[in-house]
Simulated assay, not measured.
Amino acid sequence: MAVQLPGRFARRRPRTLRGRQIRTAYLFLTPALIFFAVFYYMPIADIVNTSLHTGPQADEFNGLGNYERAFDDPAARNSFTITLFFALGTTLGAIVFGLGLALLVNRPLRGRTAFRLALLVPYLTSVAVVGLLWRNILHPHLGILNRLLEELGLPTQQWLNTNPLATITVVTVWQIAGYTMILFLAGLQGIPEVYYEAAYVDGASTAQRFWRITLPLLTPTTLFVTVMSVITGLQAFGQAYIITNGGPANSSDLIVFHIFNVAFDSRDFGYSSALSVLLLIVIMVFTALQLRAGRRREVQY
């Protein structure tokens, strides 16, 4: 014979089950929350606290003095400007070349799997190795590129001195294009073929199918690539440190490299922390603006 529980107990049981589920979820999330708290949030809080101090040991309270100094420092402004141009160049290059390569390898070509892997190898290689490789290739006297120009009877170039910012931008695009290609390739393969078939029946050309179907439906992928490329460009360090050393005349002094020099060459940890916080704010603002603009342009068929 079934026992009928009183109404208050019947109502309490689902609530207790819900509470157990919430406690279990937090129990599984606890290691990740501890990891983020120890290795992300606590260092950020420490940097913010350090940015409010000055002195060799960053032990003298300075309030917002370091931030005021950052806005008045021409070297910091120059470094931020250079980094913005670098991030813009690498983002546009990653989108254009990544999408172009994705369209190419998405076709039924012989050996396309090996071609995809070959294009992905630079991204899987560390920035240090890529930097050393290209520094040797672009060396004005011993580099392979200038040797090739000599063999062809063409004038050699001072690749690392004439326009170093463009040089490290091209090197960075070369390294990350394979990664963006994989992302765009996944987006292309997620577009239903029926759209292209219907457009073909309606007489749409290849260019019209690309502009009216492929590009609009790749908006989420393009948004993701844009956000990640901008963040990567703003945080770039190894290219300036290894390939150009920030020169000549600070023309490739990326902001993270500038922060590194302020912290470990000038031993000004308070000011370098303030620059780091400002960089974090810039990244957050750019990311929020890109996400907002991307959601407005998202197209659904």
Rank of each mutant, 00 (worst) to 15 (best):
F86V: 05
Y195M: 06
M228L: 13
Q4M: 03
A70P: 03
A128D: 00
L104H: 04
L103C: 08
V225H: 01
L215C: 02
P140S: 08
A102E: 09
A10P: 00
T226A: 08
S273N: 01
E150I: 00
V194A: 10
L17Q: 12
A114F: 13
G246W: 01
R292M: 03
R292T: 12
L154I: 05
M42Y: 14
A166F: 02
R69Y: 00
L33H: 08
G187S: 08
T232E: 14
S51V: 02
Q235Y: 05
F85S: 09
P31I: 03
V171C: 01
I47F: 01
S272R: 07
R18G: 14
S252C: 02
V277R: 07
A293C: 02
F28Y: 13
L279N: 09
V277H: 13
L254Q: 05
I283F: 00
A236S: 10
I182E: 00
L124C: 13
Y40E: 04
Y179V: 11
D73A: 02
L218C: 11
R267G: 03
F85C: 09
V227T: 09
F61Q: 07
A94H: 02
T222L: 15
N78D: 14
N245S: 09
G233C: 06
Y200F: 04
V262A: 15
T244Y: 05
Q175K: 15
Q4R: 10
H53F: 08
P164Y: 00
P43C: 03
G131F: 11
V96M: 03
G246P: 10
R8L: 06
F86G: 12
L218M: 11
G178P: 10
P192I: 06
G190T: 06
E60H: 08
